[in-house]
Design a protein around this nucleic acid. Sequence first.
DNA 1: CGTTCAATTGATCAGCGTCAAACTAGGTGG
DNA 2: CCACCTAGTTTGACGCTGATCAATTGAACG
Lengths: 232, 232
Amino acid sequence: MRSESREQVKALSLFGDMSEAAFERLLAGSYFQRFPAHVVLIREGDPADFLHVVVEGGVELFSDWRDRETTMSIARPVSTFILAAVIKDAPYLMSARTMEPSSILMIPSENIRAAMTADSAFSIAMVNELAVCFRGVVKAQKNIKLRTGVERLANYLLRLGAQQDDGGKVTIPIEKKTLASLLGMSPENLSRAFATLKPYGVDVDGAVVKFAANSDLKDFAKPTPLIDDPLA
Amino acid sequence: MRSESREQVKALSLFGDMSEAAFERLLAGSYFQRFPAHVVLIREGDPADFLHVVVEGGVELFSDWRDRETTMSIARPVSTFILAAVIKDAPYLMSARTMEPSSILMIPSENIRAAMTADSAFSIAMVNELAVCFRGVVKAQKNIKLRTGVERLANYLLRLGAQQDDGGKVTIPIEKKTLASLLGMSPENLSRAFATLKPYGVDVDGAVVKFAANSDLKDFAKPTPLIDDPLA
DNA sequence: CGTTCAATTGATCAGCGTCAAACTAGGTGG
DNA sequence: CCACCTAGTTTGACGCTGATCAATTGAACG
């Protein structure tokens, strides 16, 4: 692992408070690996042997049942995923695949659990991390149960706008297919949802979407921090 | 608080490992109170001042947006709710109201955070609790995104059957209205969903639902531990 | 330069919500 | 204890949202 990458991982709030020595122990037996795009990293139901950290690229977390599949969330650098399964030593609830060529750090679950008992600052960091994750899923749940597809899309665009701040335009960082699934609709429906938002000043050209930040769109979307603010 | 109730709370996996003295400190400044049915205990958006514990009765966690409302989950004795907001000292993401007359223990958030820094066993218990909560929401999310309304109902009935084990019949412990919202459908639709399941051996009489445990229903519902097993 | 897959568009259909009305059950007050 | 009243539940009719199927266009990659 390049030392730059190592520093980025160490800087995560999960690991930031650890001593260098403790972090070194944590990394013992870890793998740092580059994967091509569209590679399945973990499969739901498998035992949680490693905590994964996306260092570069992007990972899609998804689930299936019978012949259906849905995207649950997207993990971007630098962040961990499937933390809860690791802690409980339970089967993964979601599968994961790379969306692009990605660098992944894999830390043995056993190391995580050991660090937790050894280092109380680490377990507190863990509590905080899990609380954030929990609130993230709750927000996603509210998003799905309280909004229609078009409303979810509108709020997604606003969220992108807030984090990209590219002056009136955003670039969708994932395939539309994946976005559709993430938002809980079919790809066809996503196309139509974009068309529905046209009267509110939304203009789509490939992955680039133009709209005024303080616009009709916001009136339509009615965002609330209790669903849309990733920090709240 | 009756000592019996106190013991039940102390027996929670969150508090089980604490010393009596530490538990006593935790309870300082707590309230233990009986509420009538249909009382709002907390409102989403409010600051998380107290960790709540349902000791008797039942509490509905719900959210709203614009003019819509949805039931997010049900808290039964003896369990905590809104733990994550307490930890992050962030606004509640969900509102809570009693479904029946209920006894609620309210522990100041500050005490929880203090106990976490003072007692590393407690923060580890907290990590475990949060991991379980997280996995619970993820399962709920999968349930909603991957299944139709009728499928969710079928699996809900099987889950009830597994935990009640009343030989071929279950009693729905909440109002159908609430169940509908929990399952993500309208009350009218829930009625029709029951009708749809009739050919699979499901027979409804008020809150009592009869069906054979190893039946057509199970073939139809196709339950999987990765969604339906509360322990997995 | 052809193959493959994503994205769009149209047509159709199923699931589910809404509105309305009838019915039922639970709780209240006489 | 009973009548009443309110609220929950059920049933029917209807319409909208969104899924599916099919066909076409467009873009990426070997």
